[in-house]
Computed example of a mutant assay.
Amino acid sequence: MASVSPRSRSRGDRALYVEILIVAPLDEVWRLTQDPASHVRWDARFSDIVPQRTRADGAQDFRYELDLVVHTIRGTGVSYATKESPSGERTSALLFDTDDALSPLGTGRGYWRYVPTEKGVRFLTGYDYAPGWGWLGRVLDPLVTRRFVWWLTARSFDRLRLWAELGIPPEETSGWRSLRRGYRPRARNCLSRPRRTGRTIMEDAPVSLEEIA
């Protein structure tokens, strides 16, 4: 699957989009992404996710960490997973926030979609956020930060694919291990813009995202 540079998206839609085809059972992709302990193993955007209370509507509050060695970014969020679609499609909506002044990402919102097809599961995300770091962050975000965050997300999605399809543990495709010969996670295996729907990336979010807002 050839990727499309984030720079090729419409200037009016700054939200990030990542999509990958995973040739694995839907239930397996769901398990590896919805279980917090499994999630942090493949997703380089988090080093820890700790569930907190479950709300009456089923939404789950959580706190998260990203260990950068010299500093640990901490924040909170809420997620809401649904499995009721007649077509078999599943979704997960997310809100997140942090008070950490060193975080390049501030308040954000996004979603995951799991779309079953004859070839496998189209696993995709759309999300947007307010830049951190004040005025400097607003300057750097379109030039550096947003492009790096897209790459990090896409590479993480390919680590998930290798785990779900081939059973390769994410630990074997992280850090210096990913430089070895063999199967390497590559951001270019992901799409960076959705198929034409006439809507923006965030307009295509599931209804559940508004329900937890």
Rank of each mutant, 00 (worst) to 15 (best):
P104I: 04
S208D: 08
A213G: 02
S87F: 06
L179I: 04
E165V: 09
A101L: 14
A56Y: 05
W30L: 10
T91K: 06
D35Q: 07
D27I: 13
R193Q: 14
E165Q: 06
Y64N: 00
D99N: 10
L21S: 07
E65N: 04
R90A: 11
T98F: 03
D204F: 13
I22Y: 03
W176T: 09
F148R: 15
I20P: 07
T145Q: 12
V207N: 07
R14T: 13
A187Q: 13
S178K: 14
A37L: 08
G77I: 01
R195F: 12
P194M: 12
E210D: 11
V121T: 03
A213E: 05
R55F: 04
I73W: 12
W42E: 12
R122K: 05
W112Q: 01
R161K: 14
R193E: 14
D57V: 02
R193N: 08
S87T: 15
G12L: 14
S178R: 15
D35C: 07
P6T: 10
P104F: 05
G126P: 11
L136T: 05
R180P: 01
D204L: 13
R159H: 05
P86I: 11
A2C: 00
R63F: 04
Q60N: 01
Q52E: 06
A213N: 01
A44K: 14
E84W: 08
L102S: 09
P131N: 09
Y183I: 03
R161N: 13
D158G: 12
R181I: 01
G75K: 02
D27Y: 13
V4W: 15
T153V: 08
E89N: 12
S92P: 00
V4S: 15
W30A: 11
G12T: 14
T117N: 01
I212N: 00
I22R: 00
